[in-house]
């Protein structure tokens, strides 16, 4: 049975990371997680750093996305991300180091730290680790 599919592209300033017909996409929007099936109503939302999960032909793939937007229109999903990585491109050691750094910074509660930035860094690192484990 041919499933209905939608065109998904993940684009970063550096390159086009993903472009294929997929069944389902889930992402972490600013207002919470959301899933997109074909023929979703047109939508634009911001994305938090997190994991984008894709189902294609019954198989799941994940990408770590470092913030951006998601647009749905005419069964086409476009994710404009600041950065996006597939599981095999993630440097686990680096992500772990980044996670630790961010946690330390949050724990130190020093006045001079940028709380927002540290939090965002932590979320990015967690997303990367999550994706790396899903491989």
């Amino acid at each position: 049975m041919a499933e209905k599919t939608q065109m998904l592209s993940i684009v970063t300033p550096q390159r086009v990371v993903y472009g294929d017909e997929v069944r389902f996409v889930s992402a972490r929007g600013v207002d919470g997680d959301l899933g997109v099936l074909p023929e979703h109503t047109p939508l634009i939302t911001g994305l938090k750093p997190g994991v984008v999960r894709i189902q294609k032909d019954g198989k799941w793939t994940s990408y770590a996305v470092a913030g951006g937007f998601l647009e749905v229109r005419d069964s086409r999903v476009v994710i404009l991300a600041n950065a996006a990585e597939s599981p095999d491109l993630i440097d686990v050691k680096r992500a772990e180091a980044a996670k630790q750094r961010a946690e330390e910074r949050l724990a130190s509660k020093a006045a001079d730290i940028d709380l927002m930035r540290a939090k965002a860094a932590l979320m990015r690192a967690l997303a990367r680790l999550d994706v790396a484990q899903s491989k």
Binding site: P42, L43, R73, D74
Partner: peptide, 10 residues
């Protein structure tokens, strides 16, 4: 044609 008013979140 599509009468597609966008949904904005938030």
């Amino acid at each position: 044609k599509s009468k597609a008013a966008y949904l904005f979140e938030p």
